[in-house]
Amino acid sequence: MSLSKEQIAQRIAKEIKDGYYVNLGIGIPTLVANYIPDNINIVLQSENGLLGMGPFPFEGEEDADLINAGKQTITTLPGSSIFDSAMSFGMIRAQKVDLTILGAMEVSENGDIANWKIPGKMVKGMGGAMDLVASAKNIIVAMQHINKAGESKLLPACTLPLTGVKCIKKVVTELAVLDILPEGGFKLLEIAPGVSVDFIRQSTLGKLIVEGEIPEMKLD
């Protein structure tokens, strides 16, 4: 059985370590914040210019001046800091942010990512995604393994305009957790409960590497 978006977020949350500064992209990555264990302390960065992003405000306490990169009203936390957008990307470029989690429309077996444009159809812009993928040392992509028609989004080469090249090292999908190896190829690490390795094979168009027994993801 394939994972829900919440379960993908839940699995990714296990990759977050105590003391991390983390940037969460829009979509599934935002949900990761809901699954951070109570016993670890992390700081969320919002690239419009905030470190220490807190939860949504209580009803009636929304502040139009306090939003995250998804333009949602949020709150600060003890220890938060505010800065301008140039400094925000300065700390990203200088690799002060430990982990970046973002969505993708396609990734390739050599670590390329496409997530900002569908020519002739969707032109929303790259926002901060190109800066993040070009500089972050540790990026996890949260994405759908296959589209509604069953076609693979893990490809030999991306077909959509690229956001960054050779930058993605880990992918978590509704079907599996995979590493992208430096020499190229998706290495299967874990499979979703009830999903067969054969189904992963037929759902992965890029080079898939399967070694030994593949464990099932643990979500608790």
């Binding site: 690239e47 140039a86 925000s88 990307f89 032109v123 790259m126 926002g127 901060g128 995604a129 190109m130």
Partner: peptide, 22 residues
Amino acid sequence: FERQLLSGELEVELIPQGTLAT
């Protein structure tokens, strides 16, 4: 905006957010 862009009425240069700020 998206309509004017796709129809070619508006010239648009999309650039990364950090590049814009810097």
